[in-house]
């Protein structure tokens, strides 16, 4: 018990949350303040309107599945105006969700009887969204995709602190990117800074 408490206290020291982004029910919040509200909260059209709002020109976006699009756009909002350098090992990406890639898994499962599509199959792994964010920003650093029963923010921050204490990471994108089998979605990302 004492060891656990010491671990938690030690954990608090170096890891500072400098920005938070939330995307749910058609609304994007930055640090709890409204940033964008879509005309509809339905996942597909909402993502489209957010992409337009951000004035992005990124062709790879259109090949992504919904989970990757959601995580990608949330990371774009999170990194907006933060001036974090590209081409680096110093930004970690630690994400989690409950449904893994099940939204796309069901779509792929339905395609097996016809002609299975490699471009759908590749998105039947939840960590692909990390790959997409890494490609966009040229982040070569530490990353991991965890699956949790529900969003366990403390567990992810615990692990991020371990990373900050034992690797050269200066920043970490940490949080939840979930699209369930019904298309219900939620993204909650934090930008953490290593204060070591």
């Amino acid at each position: 018990m004492v060891a656990m408490l010491l671990f938690i206290l030690k954990s608090m020291e170096n890891n500072q949350i400098i920005k938070e982004v939330s995307i749910e029910h058609g609304k994007v919040l930055i640090n709890q303040s409204e940033f964008f509200t879509g005309e509809t909260s339905d996942l597909g059209p909402f993502l489209k309107s957010l992409y337009k709002q951000l004035n992005l020109k990124y062709n790879k976006y259109f090949k992504m599945d919904h989970l990757s699009k959601l995580g990608f756009l949330a990371s774009e909002v999170l990194l907006l105006n933060e001036g974090i350098a590209n081409e680096t090992d110093e930004v970690a990406i630690i994400l989690a969700n409950a449904s893994s890639s099940l939204h796309t898994d069901v779509k792929y499962q339905e395609s097996i009887a016809d002609i299975p599509s490699p471009s759908v199959f590749v998105y039947t792994l939840p960590n692909i969204v990390i790959g997409e964010i890494s490609i966009r920003n040229k982040f070569y650093g530490e990353h991991m995709f965890f699956v949790q029963p529900s969003y366990n923010k403390e567990e992810l921050l615990d692990y991020t602190t371990c990373l900050f204490n034992s690797t050269p990471c200066k920043y970490a994108i940490v949080g939840w990117v979930e699209v369930n089998r019904n298309g219900d979605y939620s993204a909650k990302l934090m930008l953490c800074q290593n204060k070591k």
């Binding site: 090992d89 997409e132 982040f139 990353h143």
Partner: peptide, 11 residues
């Protein structure tokens, strides 16, 4: 141990 990304291609 360490984990890294290619930041190059998803497949």
């Amino acid at each position: 141990g360490a984990i890294s990304n290619d930041a190059n291609h998803i497949s």
